[in-house]
Simulated assay, not measured.
Amino acid sequence: MKIAVYSQYYKGNEASFSALLEALSKKKSEVFVEENFFQLITEQLDFKTSVPIKTFQALDESFDLLISIGGDGTILRAITYVSNLAIPIIGVNTGRLGFLATIQNNRIESAIDSIFEGNYKISERSLLCVETNPENEDLTQLNFALNEIAISRKNTTSMITVETHLDGEYLTSYWADGLIVSTPTGSTGYSLSCGGPVISPAAKSFAITPIAPHNLNARPLIIPDHTQIQLKVDGREDFYLISLDSRIATLHNSTIVTIKKADFKIKMIELYSESFIDTLRKKLLWGEDKRN
């Protein structure tokens, strides 16, 4: 197998990276490490290994798998290399929660064994994309988000007003710090922190969650994932922020934002020993009550 490995940081990930390389070498895999990460660990941290390693700047369809080392944020950055190539992704979790990065450090070798034996399933995850009028150059590339697209205030402590239309029909104007449009995958991220619902990855839905709304009757809303969402921002400042997962751009208040489902999906590898429900129960400590 031709396998790509991506990480953002080496500190704290040393043992996981070494264990992963060792497990892949036993399978005689062709290993490619993202160039910037490889340069960091070899030149600055003097990392050495007997495993043959090549590097990559971009991926193509010849790759069989992308493995990220880090937390869920690392996976969100890793998908920018995959885009619409349909390369499956799995993550080694060295972060905190790990809803997306599900391989634990002590199970790296067994996870690699399961992957090579075909003991896994593919979970296809929907993405969001955005259009702006007028067009914004910062959003013409990597115009997709696996977790969420969020609108938020910029350079001000004042609220913004987000006028919201669904499929051309006026919904409401949120007085808030911002607004989150989340996929099922992102429902356990920023949206959850703002009181949004948890959505099963298989559900064909998106969630609209206001950030600290001042109109107190505003509540998170579940909508079909084929809905087209149009947003218009007003506020005391002339500009606001839009974020696509971890990527941020600045837009003028005159900009109209249209959010809809992307025309491709991300393939996440899900081991049979792990499931969304199992992860949910563990990470959110559901059932951790003496009465149970």
Rank of each mutant, 00 (worst) to 15 (best):
M1N: 02
V5N: 06
Y9G: 14
K11I: 08
G12P: 09
G12S: 09
E14Q: 14
E30Q: 13
F37M: 06
I41D: 00
E43C: 13
E43F: 14
F47M: 11
S50M: 12
S50D: 15
S50I: 12
I53T: 01
I53F: 01
T55K: 11
T55A: 04
F56A: 04
A58K: 14
S62I: 06
F63M: 06
G71I: 05
D72K: 00
I75M: 15
I75P: 03
I75Q: 03
L76I: 08
R77A: 05
R77M: 07
A78Y: 05
L85Q: 08
I87N: 01
I90L: 03
G91T: 03
I103T: 03
R107C: 12
R107T: 13
A111M: 04
A111S: 13
I112C: 02
F116H: 11
G118M: 04
Y120H: 04
I122C: 07
I122W: 07
S126W: 13
L127N: 03
C129S: 06
C129R: 15
N133Y: 12
E135W: 11
L139C: 06
L139H: 05
N143A: 08
A145E: 07
I149F: 05
T156A: 04
T157L: 15
E163N: 14
Y170Q: 08
Y174L: 12
T183G: 02
P184Q: 00
G186H: 04
L192R: 10
S193T: 04
G195N: 09
G196R: 12
P197S: 06
I199C: 04
S200F: 15
S200W: 14
A203V: 09
A203Y: 12
K204A: 08
P210A: 14
H214Y: 10
N217L: 13
L221A: 05
I222S: 03
P224V: 05
Q228T: 08
I229N: 09
Q230I: 09
Q230V: 04
V233T: 06
D234W: 10
D238K: 02
S246T: 15
A262V: 01
I266T: 13
I269M: 01
E270L: 07
L271D: 07
S273T: 03
R281V: 12
K283T: 00
L285M: 15
G287N: 08
G287W: 09
D289V: 15
K290E: 14
N292C: 10
N292K: 11
